[in-house]
Nucleic acid binder design. Sequence first.
DNA 1: GTCTATAAGATGATAGAC
DNA 2: GTCTATCATCTTATAGAC
Lengths: 192, 192
Amino acid sequence: MGMNTNTLDQILDTAQQLVQTLGYNAFSYADISKEVGIRKASIHYHFPNKADLGEALVTRYHNQFVAALTQIDEQTTNDLEKLREFTVLYKAGPAQDFRLCLGVMYSTDYITLPEKVQDRLTRYFTANLTWLEQVMTHGLDAGALTFKGTAKTQAHKFLAALQGAQLLARSYNNIEIFDDIGGELITALANN
Amino acid sequence: MGMNTNTLDQILDTAQQLVQTLGYNAFSYADISKEVGIRKASIHYHFPNKADLGEALVTRYHNQFVAALTQIDEQTTNDLEKLREFTVLYKAGPAQDFRLCLGVMYSTDYITLPEKVQDRLTRYFTANLTWLEQVMTHGLDAGALTFKGTAKTQAHKFLAALQGAQLLARSYNNIEIFDDIGGELITALANN
DNA sequence: GTCTATAAGATGATAGAC
DNA sequence: GTCTATCATCTTATAGAC
């Protein structure tokens, strides 16, 4: 992470870190400028306006996330283990200076976001929920997981709890709160 | 709500709505000015700087929240019913134009908040978690609730899931997602 | 308590030289 | 692609009259 050398990726890396730390409305082109060592006008060359930058951030994030899910699918066929790996993905933000994942930060900024960014965000969450629901469904059928209600509802709850776990860990400057919640989510689904 | 007539409360009401909708960094004294029909300088008379206003908002919110919890305690001794009422409190924001509760919005703004506001936020969450943990503990002992692990962990997960439920409902403009998650949280704890 | 006037700085953004 | 220079607008905040 952050090892990119070309200007465009350096801008995206820096902007993403700033969004995950401060939020979409609290970072500026001047902030990126200082960090990357480039003038504000040069950033506007790559991303004419903030909406373009904001959209590029979700799009890249979404693609990287899908790649990570694919890797989990290739890594194991154990549904409970898949879910555990999913919680690891959601720990990446909090583990670095209690950053929030891009999705959580964008969803609180939602109303202030340009429409095209809002749309991309929703699609990102749908990718999350679709994958989770599939794992829940398969896990229940295969006897690897146990839960009441529908797989869709479980997917909703699972994702929501991880998002809230990021918020609580941040508010207490305590990563153990995230681990506590993440661990419980897995335990509750374990069939034994 | 929003029925206050004196200027100070009107400022607080408007500011709170703006924070819950836009976030701490995305609303300005000018926004409040327009809504209340008062000049910016007059707002500075009541709240010299934004940190003062931000702090007054959490403090008032915290007090109102504690009062609501007290009312729940007086209303019922059924632990599952208490938790269900707690989810109703957390639905108040999303039910109004998909606002987030003040705690969720502030926790994403956390790093940009003045220190005294950060402290108040943490105390607010502690009030949430303490109450939830007590209900979990009592409910397990009395046989009204069922869950694995500690009451503290359950309290963490319960609160986190409701926070995430607000974010997902907002990102999909769909209150049913909140209801789905809230309902599941109760179902999963029901002892039958 | 509320107003007008005003300040100093930040913000997203553009024009045009190199 | 990156720069300097500049813009209109918004931000929080203060001084002082009514």
